[in-house]
């Protein structure tokens, strides 16, 4: 655990309070479908303020192009998330959800987790959200229903959501591998995933921001190239192709039992879906 400077803690609290209140104000409620424009604008302002502060909390990757993409994806995911919750038309909500998924995949890609990015897009954007769209469109044939347009318990939902965000912020900021938020004087280190053999870890010396001048030894991953660094050139010789092969070998050696169990559960679910979906001939004939 780091000792937080009080300013960081205050800032986290401010972000969560403003964000929560703003989101609450922006959500459609039971009493009035169309909120007064002032309330809506106030909510938007608060959310924007919180989002800007959140961006200021982290320092993106160093190369300018990577940093640009990082901010574009980050802002798109935060904005998309807010709009997904506050949109009145469920189809728009589903589309904003797709934006969130795509932006998040972009962030995964930048962190070097390409397989995760592609998987997320294929599963969520390509299949699940399309299914949502199907259901929403077919269920809405008689015009838009009230229950589709209003939020059930906006106050409770905002409170819970932003308490979760607050705890996540604190956990992320107190992770010793995370350096972006605190002063930003240390070279950011690429840490993507935990599914990595110990042989890939190297010992590095790093500066700790809160103890100027002190050098601490730490374990970290072998520095990998971030995607934009080799965009123009291709991988230099000797750098092993990461990701898919590593993930596969980890899944089928260390985590063999878990993946087999997951596979079995999915197979059972598939069989169940087929059984449920098949029309029963005996009933219809009778």
């Amino acid at each position: 655990m780091h000792d937080f400077p009080p300013s960081v803690l205050t800032r986290c609290l401010l972000i969560c309070l403003c964000g929560g209140l703003g989101t609450f104000l922006m959500m459609p409620t039971r009493r009035q479908f169309a909120k007064p424009a002032v309330v809506f604008a106030l909510g938007t302002g608060l959310v924007a303020f919180a989002a800007l502060n959140l961006i200021g909390l982290g320092a993106g990757p160093a190369p300018i192009v990577s940093r640009m993409f990082f901010y574009v994806f980050g802002i798109a995911s935060v904005l998309g998330g807010t709009l997904m919750i506050t949109a009145r038309d469920p189809v728009h909500s589903a589309l904003w959800f797709a934006v969130v998924v795509l932006a998040t995949s972009g962030l995964f890609m930048m962190a070097g987790a390409g397989f995760l990015a592609a998987g997320t897009v294929i599963v969520y954007a390509g299949a699940i959200i399309v299914t949502f769209l199907f259901v929403i469109m077919l269920a809405q044939s008689g015009g838009k229903a009230d229950y589709d347009r209003l939020a059930r318990q906006p106050a409770q939902a905002s409170l819970t959501g932003f308490i979760l965000i607050w705890s996540l912020l604190i956990v992320i900021l107190s992770d010793p591998n995370y350096h972006g938020g605190l002063e930003g004087s240390v070279e950011p280190v690429v840490v993507n995933s935990r599914l990595i053999p110990a042989s890939d870890l190297v010992t590095v010396r790093k500066l700790m921001p809160e103890h100027p001048g002190a050098i601490v030894l730490g374990k970290t991953l072998t520095p990998q190239l971030s995607t934009p660094d080799h965009l123009g050139k291709g991988l230099p010789a000797g750098v092993p192709a990461p990701q898919v092969a590593g993930l596969g070998s980890a899944l089928y050696t260390t985590h063999l039992i878990s993946s087999e169990v997951v596979g079995a559960i999915l197979f059972v679910a598939l069989a169940g879906a087929v059984v449920i979906a098949t029309p029963r001939k005996s009933n219809s004939a009778a």
Partner: peptide, 14 residues
């Protein structure tokens, strides 16, 4: 040098 070229194409195709 994108390690997941084919997956990317399927993701975009979806």
């Amino acid at each position: 040098g994108i390690d997941i070229g084919l997956l990317y194409i399927f993701a975009v195709g979806s």
